[in-house]
Computed example of a mutant assay.
Amino acid sequence: MALAALVPGALLGWVVYEAVGGGGSDHAASAASASGASAAPSSHSSPSTDSAAPPGSGGASAGDGKDTAGGSGPLAGKVVVIDPGHNQGNFEHATEINQQVDIGTNRKECDTTGTSTDAGYTEARFTLDVAHRLRALLEKQGATVKMTRDGDSPAWGPCVDQRARFGNTARADAAISIHADGAAQGDRGFHVILPGSVHAGAADTRKIVGPSRDLGTRIAGDFLRDTGEPPSNYVGKGTGLVTRTDLGGLNLSTVPKVFIECGNMRDSKDSALLTSGAWRQKAAQGMSDGIVSFLRES
């Protein structure tokens, strides 16, 4: 599909590709399962472009129930939950993250370590950095922002069911879980994961499927525009959108929520972008633009 056609307006008419997987990770893929590579931290030094969070992005620790500063901008009164995927501490807490939790349709691991670039820049670090940047942008728009984890808190996890409940308890107007994929070299591009219709056990997504699709479509369009990253060439049939019913973070959500896989950390072209602080700022901007668009019209 021609990139010029994938503008936000056209995205609203995309046909969503149903891709219900059964992987162990609570997102599209992990490095260990998708590429056979180890997901353990590398001894290589992390890229110098892994800059600190932008000024003014400080806020509440994960799960402490405190709001970050909501202002008087266009999103005043709106609550956004940001869920940075995985946790750097998961590498040292294998027993805890391997415990099974109920995701409605079945039971699944509490969490996984996530993937990393070949040079050892972990998904957990990437997602937290982008989350900080996104938080700062949303706060400038007046939103109250909460994060499921921040800094070293909690030490591992949270489990995928806890991440979903965090957004539910916060009564979020929108929630986004940030990830990066771990597929094979040559597989590249972003995709936004939408919740499918699930009504089983503790899961009932029927009320959020529509608004979540709207949220995800807007984020996909703005992410493409702001970053120039193409839609995934290995899932989603070029649309940049995938629907799944095997993810606890989506199945158990009662608020509009999507996942975004920002790129493939195991692909050399994508990893060059993901390890760039300047590009991560563009990624945060794309997410912010999509969330702002959704909230201003919801």
Score class of each variant (00 low, 15 high):
residue 209 V to W: 09
residue 48 S to C: 06
residue 67 D to C: 15
residue 246 D to S: 11
residue 222 D to H: 15
residue 33 S to A: 14
residue 234 Y to L: 07
residue 190 F to S: 05
residue 203 A to P: 05
residue 227 T to R: 07
residue 35 S to E: 04
residue 98 N to H: 13
residue 57 S to W: 08
residue 225 R to S: 14
residue 119 A to I: 10
residue 195 P to R: 11
residue 19 A to Y: 12
residue 216 G to S: 08
residue 47 P to Y: 06
residue 228 G to C: 13
residue 134 L to V: 13
residue 94 A to C: 00
residue 252 L to V: 01
residue 99 Q to V: 01
residue 164 A to P: 07
residue 56 G to R: 07
residue 152 D to S: 15
residue 140 K to T: 12
residue 79 V to K: 10
residue 181 D to W: 09
residue 30 S to W: 03
residue 68 T to I: 00
residue 287 M to Q: 11
residue 242 V to C: 02
residue 228 G to P: 11
residue 170 A to C: 13
residue 157 G to W: 00
residue 243 T to V: 08
residue 180 A to C: 12
residue 17 Y to D: 04
residue 90 N to T: 00
residue 210 G to A: 15
residue 158 P to R: 01
residue 162 Q to W: 00
residue 253 S to L: 04
residue 229 E to H: 13
residue 291 I to V: 11
residue 53 A to E: 07
residue 269 K to R: 10
residue 155 A to F: 04
residue 243 T to S: 09
residue 29 A to F: 11
residue 154 P to I: 02
residue 246 D to C: 05
residue 279 W to A: 02
residue 252 L to Y: 00
residue 281 Q to M: 08
residue 72 S to N: 15
residue 200 A to W: 06
residue 220 A to N: 09
residue 154 P to G: 04
residue 25 S to C: 12
residue 172 A to Q: 05
residue 119 A to P: 02
residue 113 T to Q: 13
residue 156 W to Y: 13
residue 169 T to Q: 12
residue 219 I to S: 06
residue 102 D to M: 10
residue 88 Q to I: 08
residue 131 A to F: 14
residue 193 I to D: 00
residue 206 R to M: 00
